[in-house]
Write a protein that binds this DNA or RNA. Structure first.
Length: 380
DNA sequence: ACACATGATTGGTA
DNA sequence: TACCAATCATGTGT
C-alpha cells in the first residue's frame, strides 16, 4: 500500500505545543505533551474552540488523518476480538420474573387479580371479609412501590437515551478529527447500555427488596396487631356475658360471631380464650363491663341472641335474662368456678375447672384476692 | 415515657 | 384437638 504523503519539511508547531519545555530532561516529549495537555484544562472554552478550529484547518490535518486511519485499520481486528458476547444475565431474569410475579413490572391496573389476589390468599386466617383495611394498605403501598419503580425506570431510560445521543454526537464530531467507524459507535452505545442496565438491575433489586419487606410485614400478623373494631368487641362481649355459665361457643357460633364482627374464627377462639382467662383472673375488673352488657341485653332485647339462635349453652336454661347488676354478679360467681356445661364439649376444661374450683374466687369487694388459685398475669 | 389493654403465640394438658 | 396459662408484642391513654 502507498504511504500517506509525508511532510517535506517540518510543519510549524501546533499552537498548543509551541511553549518551550520548562526544564524537563531532553528526550521523548511525553512529559512535555502531558504538561501541555494539563495546561489545556486552564484554557477557556473559547480558547479551546479556537485551537480546535485551528487544528481542523491545519494543512497537515488530512495527512495525519489518513495515518490514523491506517493505524486504526490495523488495530481494528483486535478491537473486534475483545468484543465480548454478553450472556443472558440469569440474575436479571430472576429479578424480572419476581417483579412480574409481584405485579410491579406490569403497569397499574384498575381491576382485581395479580398482586391483590396474591395478597388475599396470603391473608392470615384466610378470611375474605376481614383485614380489608390491611389489604387496601398493602395495595396502596405496593402501588407506591410500583409507581416509584416505573418513574425511576423511565428516568434511567431517558438518561440512557440522552447520554447515548450525547456520546454519539461526540463521536461523530470526533470523526472529523480521527476515524470513528460506525462499529465503534455501536460498541460504545452498547457499553453505555450495559452500564445503564447494571443500574437498572440495582433498581430492580431494591424494588424486590421493598416488596419482600412489605409482604413480610403484611403477613406478620403479630407485628400488625390491631385492636378489634368496636362492633366486633361488642358482638363478642355480648355473647360472652350472655353465656357466662358456658362461655364456649361452638364452631357454628364462632363462625357466626366471626362473620358478624368481621374477624376470623381463630380470632374469635383467641378472643374467648383470652377473655375466659382474664375474666377469671380479675373478675372485679370486669364487673362494670358485665353489668353494662347484661343490662344492655336485657333492655335491648339481646342483640347477640338474634344472631346466635342455636348457641350451645346446653346444660343451662339458655341465655341469661339478667335484669340487674345483682343478677350479673350471680352469673359472675357462676363463672368463677369456670365449670363449662357438661355437654359443652369441655370435659377437660371441667376437670381443670374443678382444680380451679378448689378455691373458688369470691366475687365481692376483693374479687382477685385469692392467690391460691389465681396466679398473677405478668402482663396484666 | 410509662402503664395498662389486648390480640397473638407458644407449650403443656387431657 | 380444644383449651389453659404464660408470655410476647403492639396499641392506646395519660
Amino acid at each position: 500500500m502507498d504511504s500517506p504523503p509525508r511532510p517535506q519539511r517540518p510543519a510549524p508547531p501546533l499552537p498548543a505545543l509551541r511553549r518551550p519545555p520548562p526544564g524537563p530532561p531532553p528526550g521523548p516529549d511525553t512529559g512535555e505533551v502531558l504538561q501541555q495537555i494539563m495546561a489545556i484544562t486552564d484554557q477557556s472554552l473559547e480558547e479551546a474552540q479556537a485551537r480546535k478550529h485551528a487544528l481542523n484547518c491545519h494543512r497537515m490535518k488530512p495527512a495525519l488523518f489518513s495515518v490514523l486511519c491506517e493505524i486504526k485499520e490495523k488495530t481494528g481486528l483486535s478491537i473486534h476480538g475483545i468484543q465480548e458476547e454478553c450472556p443472558p444475565n440469569a440474575q436479571l431474569m430472576r429479578l424480572d420474573n419476581m417483579l412480574l410475579a409481584e405485579g410491579v413490572s406490569r403497569p397499574e391496573r384498575r381491576g382485581r387479580g395479580g398482586p391483590v389476589a396474591a395478597a388475599n390468599t396470603a391473608t392470615p386466617g384466610g378470611c375474605s371479609n376481614d383485614n380489608s383495611l390491611e389489604h387496601s394498605d398493602y395495595r396502596a403501598k405496593l402501588s407506591q412501590i410500583r409507581q416509584i419503580y416505573h418513574s425511576e425506570l423511565e428516568k434511567y431510560e431517558q438518561a440512557c437515551r440522552e447520554f447515548t445521543t450525547h456520546v454519539t454526537n461526540l463521536l461523530r464530531e470526533q470523526s472529523r478529527m480521527r476515524p470513528v467507524s460506525p462499529k465503534e459507535i455501536e460498541r460504545m452505545v452498547s457499553v453505555i447500555h450495559g452500564k445503564f442496565s447494571a443500574i437498572q438491575m440495582q433498581l430492580k433489586q431494591s424494588t424486590c427488596e421493598a416488596v419482600m419487606t412489605l409482604r413480610s410485614r403484611f403477613l406478620d400478623a403479630r407485628r400488625k396487631r390491631r385492636n378489634f373494631s368496636k362492633r366486633a368487641t361488642e358482638v363478642l362481649n355480648e355473647y360472652f356475658y350472655s353465656h357466662l355459665n358456658n362461655p364456649y361457643p361452638s364452631e357454628e357460633a364462632k363462625e357466626r360471631l366471626a362473620r358478624k364482627g368481621g374477624i376470623t374464627v381463630s380470632q374469635v377462639s383467641n378472643w374467648f380464650g383470652n377473655k375466659r382467662i382474664r375474666y377469671k383472673k380479675n373478675m372485679g375488673k370486669f364487673q362494670e363491663e358485665a353489668t353494662i352488657y347484661t343490662t344492655k341485653m336485657a333492655v335491648g332485647g339481646l342483640g347477640s341472641q338474634a344472631s346466635c339462635p342455636s348457641t350451645p349453652s346446653s346444660g343451662s336454661s339458655g341465655p341469661f335474662p339478667l335484669t340487674s347488676a345483682g343478677d350479673a354478679l350471680v352469673t359472675l360467681q357462676t363463672l368463677a368456678s369456670l365449670r363449662p356445661a357438661p355437654a359443652g364439649g369441655s370435659l377437660r376444661s371441667q376437670a381443670r375447672g374443678s382444680r380451679l374450683g378448689a378455691a373458688p374466687p369470691v366475687l365481692t369487694a376483693s374479687p382477685s384476692g385469692d392467690p391460691g388459685s389465681i396466679s398473677s398475669d405478668a402482663s396484666n
